[in-house]
Amino acid sequence: MPIRCEIVSQDRMVFEGDADIVIVPGSLGEMGILPGHAPLLSTLELGVIRVKNGDQEEVFTVTGGFIEVQPDIVTIMADASENVEEIDVQRAEEAMQRAKKLLEKEAPPDPDAYLRIQAAIKRSSLRLKSVDQYRKRGQRSRPPGMGASK
């Protein structure tokens, strides 16, 4: 019996479907959720969510959020989440460059700005890495300037 998996981010429904196992980056390390899991409430770290159903696997990036598990349903409330197949590689690369440039220029005056830039770098690198690692379609991260799929 599969477990139902729903991933919502703050601005849309990202994924809805059945799964044999859902692997998420929990706050205490990676967790695999199987059907019939005990009720659980946890925070999520930056990382990837893998939803396996039979021989199919869908991979999503997540930048943090929460997970609620009931025996028959996993609800993931992500701050932001994307299917790896949908990631716009060019945009991620540009965001990475921008953030790096900001850090090179000078140390940001306040620690908040510094943390924001750090977070931006982490997000972009997560997106680029997960595309390299998990994208099924032929194209992986392209040389810059090649144009994205969208």
């Binding site: 706050s27 009720p39 659980l40 946890s42 925070t43 929460f66 009931q70 028959d72 349903i73």
Partner: peptide, 23 residues
């Protein structure tokens, strides 16, 4: 809600206090 009301309590990670304070 597609599931039955909870029978047992939640398992909280990292710990009950910090996650509830946040959520």
């Amino acid at each position: 809600a597609e599931s039955e009301p909870l029978i047992g309590g939640y398992i909280f990670e990292p710990d009950q206090k910090s996650i509830l304070e946040e959520i």
